[in-house]
């Protein structure tokens, strides 16, 4: 799969002057950046820089005190996570948030909940339209299962899967929603080299084949520099750099933040 038809479009998501504090602790101050349609945008920074808080603002878990978020051209103030999901924002978590009691198949099927329209009574009967709908979605889910190469663990409860596979299933659940914007919170944390390579391949393929816009947080610099089109760097809740991987790599502030400055 060569990156052939990648088109970076207009701005999909625009973050302007976001300030978020918890009591006296300021998690984000005055952060602005944008995500363009079709690109892979990385958010990096040392621990506690506010990266996850930023994602939580984007998909409605946190409500920033100041600033505004424009998504698909409309400004939104307060938004609940399920509304963000309805608008096509899906995400994965730093520490896996799968439904442990359910099988891989059910977990990924649950990603398509919003797409299933049949009412409660049809489902109780499981007959006619409800069954057809269920099978249609099963087919879509099977495509994702093929794509992520997890056919063998389809029926296994996810709680029993190894860590790397759980991460993959979680990505599958996010993909099942066919999102416009995919937020990945440390998709490669705690993985070995081989698993990381697989995950990178999936991320690139998702972006390339489905045209999904991706915003990801990652600590592995090699991965970030290889994957992303543009990188934004946060430190202590402030943006210190923004640009292509090469620009960011040579930025003095970024080098200081990562390597430390002599006092």
């Amino acid at each position: 799969m060569t990156s052939s038809g990648r088109v970076i479009g207009d701005t999909l998501l625009k973050i302007e002057n976001i300030t978020l504090s918890f009591g006296g602790v300021r998690a984000l101050s005055d952060v602005s950046f944008d995500v363009r349609k079709g690109e892979i945008r990385a958010i990096i920074g040392p621990n506690g820089a506010g990266k996850s808080s930023m994602l939580n603002c984007i998909n409605g878990f946190y409500h920033p005190q100041k600033g505004q978020i424009t998504y698909k051209g409309t400004v939104r103030q307060q938004m609940r996570p399920h509304e963000a999901a309805a608008q096509g924002i899906a995400r994965t978590f730093q520490n896996i948030a799968l439904f442990k009691g359910m099988s891989t198949l059910d977990n990924i099927m649950s990603g398509r909940l919003l797409k299933m329209k049949r009412g409660f009574f049809w489902q109780a009967l499981y007959w006619g339209p409800a069954e057809r709908e269920e099978l249609e979605h099963r087919e879509a889910v099977e495509k994702i299962i093929d794509f992520l190469e997890i056919q063998a663990i389809r029926k296994m409860p996810v709680g029993k899967l190894p860590y790397g596979l759980q991460k993959r299933v979680e990505l599958g659940r996010a993909l099942a929603a066919e999102p416009d914007l995919l937020l990945l919170d440390e998709p490669m944390a705690g993985m070995n080299v081989e698993e990381k390579e697989d995950m990178c391949r999936f991320i690139l393929d998702v972006n390339d084949q489905f045209g999904t816009t991706i915003a990801l947080i990652e600590h592995d610099m090699g991965v970030v520099m290889d994957l992303s089109d543009r990188v934004v760097v946060l430190e202590y809740g402030q943006k210190i750099a923004d640009g292509t991987p090469d620009e960011v790599r040579s930025n003095q502030k970024v080098i200081d933040a990562y390597l430390g400055v002599p006092h």
Partner: peptide, 22 residues
């Protein structure tokens, strides 16, 4: 079906359930 999966999602992890639109 969908209803049951939504229930189990809420049972297993309500934050993730909200994320997928429940």
């Amino acid at each position: 079906s969908r209803v049951g999966r939504a229930w189990m999602a809420v049972r297993d992890m309500d934050i993730a359930a909200e994320i997928i639109g429940i």
